[in-house]
């Protein structure tokens, strides 16, 4: 069941501190002025985030707030609270890569990332990759063309990882792609096709 969600205003700054202030505010410090001095901020931050609180996540360009405990991982926040089920849970321990998303442009395992720590960061999931209107990202199109998947369960993680792999500059050769994509298991074993897709999409990602 998707958790209760409320739309939150887009944060123009998006910095972590701003979000902590916000979180603090939700914790009952609503009287704190919008612009805190250093001392005041420390007071606010010394308050713990405990139990259910509002956590604001900027996912695919939109800030959304959930009510959740600090133990909620980014993956579960996406899947169970925001109903963004494109990011997959394959192992929940950083051992398969199916949950890969981009946080501030870096690929990470969202299953080992806390939602509360992801506030103020740009989170990109598979749902945010295609253009509005549905035009596929070149990596998505290449996966489709090269049959870089079978069951499709690891695919969102593969594609997010692949986009980062290219952006990092780790798609220079077949061997390099294979090594740098090894954090994404594919049990159907579409590996040769995944590799081919990445090498092709690289040329179109600009």
């Amino acid at each position: 069941m998707p958790g209760p969600t409320t739309p939150a205003p887009l944060n123009p700054d998006g910095s972590r501190r701003t979000f902590m202030k916000q979180a603090g505010g939700f914790l009952g410090l609503a009287l704190a002025p919008p612009f805190l001095s250093q001392a005041e901020r420390l007071t606010a931050l010394s308050k713990k985030v405990e139990g259910v609180s509002t956590i604001s996540l900027k996912v695919n360009g939109t800030v959304r707030a959930i009510r959740a405990e600090p133990r909620v991982t980014l993956l579960d926040a996406l899947r169970e609270y925001l109903d963004l089920t494109g990011s997959k849970k394959g192992c929940d321990h950083g051992q398969c890569g199916a949950c890969t998303v981009l946080v501030d442009g870096r690929r990470v395992n969202s299953c080992l990332t806390l939602a509360v720590m992801s506030q103020g960061k740009e989170i990109t999931t598979i749902e945010g990759l295609a253009k509005e209107g549905g035009e596929l990202h070149p990596m998505q199109a290449a996966f489709l063309k090269h049959d870089g998947f079978q069951c499709g369960y690891c695919t969102p993680g593969q594609i997010m990882s692949a986009v980062a792999c290219v952006q990092e500059g780790h798609a220079g050769s077949e061997a390099e792609v294979r090594e740098w994509m090894s954090g994404n298991l594919c049990r159907c074993s579409a590996y040769p096709n995944i590799t081919a897709a990445i090498l092709e999409a690289k040329g179109q990602m600009g």
């Binding site: 950083g94 890569g97 890969t100 870096r106 690929r107 990470v108 395992n109 080992l112 990332t113 990882s161 980062a164 792999c165 990092e168 780790h170 740098w180 994509m181 090894s182 954090g183 994404n184």
Partner: peptide, 9 residues
Amino acid sequence: AASAQLRNM
């Protein structure tokens, strides 16, 4: 070590 994702984290 590990994977590109874990090394980023």
